[in-house]
Design a protein around this nucleic acid. Sequence first.
DNA 1: GCCATATGTCTTGCGTGACAATATATATGG
DNA 2: CCATATATATTGTCACGCAAGACATATGGC
Lengths: 123, 123
Amino acid sequence: MSSTGRGDDRKGIDRELKRGSLELIVLHLLSLGEAYGYEIVTALTERSNGGLEVTDGTLYPVLYRLERSGFVAVRWETPQRGVPRKYYRLTKAGHAELAQLTHEWNTFASAMAQLLRQQPEVT
Amino acid sequence: MSSTGRGDDRKGIDRELKRGSLELIVLHLLSLGEAYGYEIVTALTERSNGGLEVTDGTLYPVLYRLERSGFVAVRWETPQRGVPRKYYRLTKAGHAELAQLTHEWNTFASAMAQLLRQQPEVT
DNA sequence: GCCATATGTCTTGCGTGACAATATATATGG
DNA sequence: CCATATATATTGTCACGCAAGACATATGGC
């Protein structure tokens, strides 16, 4: 699958802005409840009005990283009908990491807000 | 020169968070008035309480990029005493780009804030 | 005189992460 | 039986932040 390919121009900036925040985004979403990959992709598009869209090609590596780091645990579920799903949920370490990343994000966002607030003198 | 090398742990996350926002940061600083590279490095450390620190090895490539894109213009100044300084100032295109990036940053930050506001139900 | 330090700019190389592209499998509707 | 939706996974590319290093000019101390 991999995105619908609608006419995106100017993708460059958002792409970079997302760097470093994707783990936080995913961890936070998982803190709201267990979810599987495809679900996260669609949930993110809806919940953020497209402002935080993520393609599967981006998400799965993130999930893999989080799993390797011990922040999420995995459970396969094979329904009678349909494709098997891989459910992710936060571990204890994941909750701690979420708290840490949230704090760092807030610090950074505050610093940015403070800087951008400064205006040049009007002559 | 290149940083004082004080004992930084956990540099990884901030490094990624800054991605994509550095151009905005620099453009915004320059919108407050002309400045030279070294000045920007120190100004950023002070103005943001270290929250947005940048080393010269990071800044100069950014400035070079901005210059190549036509967002900043350059002026050399050689004082009677002291090392020559390269002053940067915003061009008209630079002001436009600043407005654009500011808007994108605000959109992104809002989306993040909205997402992070959502809490799991307490049972 | 000479060396350390501060001021100032510039360049190379590395690691990492977001993403497009691609592949694969199962189910459903026409 | 073929297109489409659901679902996971991997490979390769590109840009960026930054450490590390190099170079040049001035100043103060010994």
